[in-house]
Simulated scan of single mutants.
Amino acid sequence: MSRESLTWLNQNTLIGFSAKRGTAWHYRASHQGDEPNHYPGPIPVADVKRRLFGWEPIEGTLETSYLTGDGVTRLTDPTRKTIIRPDTGHILGVFKQGFQIHEYKRWLVQHIETILDDELAIGSAGLLKGGAVAWVQVELPDTCTTPEGVAFRPFLSAATSLDGSLSSTYQTGAQLIVCDNTLSAALASNNAKRVKIKHSRNSLGRVVDVRDALGIIHQAADAFAAEVRQLCQVEISDAHWRSFLDQHVPLPAEHGRSRTMAQTKRHALMHLWDRDKRVSPWRGTAFGVLQAVNTFTHHGQIVRGAVRAERNMHRMITGDIDDLDLATVQTLEKVLDRSILTKAA
């Protein structure tokens, strides 16, 4: 990873409760005169506004020019507009006129402020893709630990974008302390705890949906603990584990790059299963399988076109982490030929 990437992560992400969960892997001690981006306790709302969202996106026109035999011709498209970050001059997106900006201060801070109290505080916040995507994460101040020894922090994340890549999204999850992974807290629910609001002209009238979504964080801790309990009760034999690997990472018959990549991934998963403290304490259980796949995806899988921390955060705020964990459970259920999670009502 380049020094520029590390600098970006440390200047554009704020990490709270470091006294309880440790520092992020990309953390660098601040130099004299630098403002640290890690907070021992909660992140003050004022710091999120000042350090991350101290600018407002603006709309611009879409113009282009081209050279002809008669000179330079300039055209303007009145049906489209650009979204610009004024402090850097970067164009973050090009849209039809109906695109509605969801300002970060309003959609990620003001809405979040309505639920902050002694039990809920901001645990992380940041910008991705040059400011085109942003998130604010709300957490309970204390780490939860299940009887199975899984220490986690339930959270609710609020995220949106200025490049059209993400609707304004509010959802719950759980962050594991032992590995700094994000796991789904919706596997045992009939419906994922997620609300998405598109950037349409009618989106500003859906604030009531946002308020309903913000109330679900108190359910996340119990939901995730119930998932862990059920998954830890499902025994996975060595034969089951090998069968799972065969389905999760099929080994091509022909020798070549694809077979080599599959072998490398299988070896990494087996190492996690057998000897890595992030997974091996739950070896022989369905939770161990889930943890192995999730940990590999977060920390071992090859990342192209992005910084790993950015890719992990983007996976969390888009809900891809729910899809990853659900796919793992579904594959394991095929191996066992039975359901392993009791669906909540």
Rank of each mutant, 00 (worst) to 15 (best):
L128C: 09
G16M: 14
G71E: 04
L67S: 09
Q97R: 05
L62T: 12
T145D: 00
H26M: 04
R80E: 15
A151Q: 05
H102S: 08
I58E: 08
L75C: 11
V48L: 10
R74K: 13
C144V: 14
I101L: 08
G98I: 01
S124Q: 05
W55G: 06
E63M: 12
R50D: 03
Y104T: 10
E139R: 12
V94R: 10
P86L: 09
P36A: 09
T146V: 02
T114Y: 04
K81V: 01
K129T: 04
V138N: 03
K49A: 12
G149I: 07
R85G: 09
P147Q: 15
T143Q: 09
P86G: 07
W55C: 10
D70H: 01
K96L: 06
W107S: 05
D34Q: 14
G60K: 04
E103C: 09
V109D: 02
W135E: 05
L62P: 04
G98L: 02
P57D: 04
L116A: 06
F17E: 13
E35F: 10
V150T: 07
H111N: 12
V138K: 00
K49N: 08
W135A: 01
F95G: 05
T145K: 00
K81R: 12
H38I: 15
L140E: 11
A134L: 05
L116K: 06
T146I: 10
L140Y: 02
D118V: 07
V133H: 06
C144A: 14
A19K: 15
A29V: 13
F95V: 07
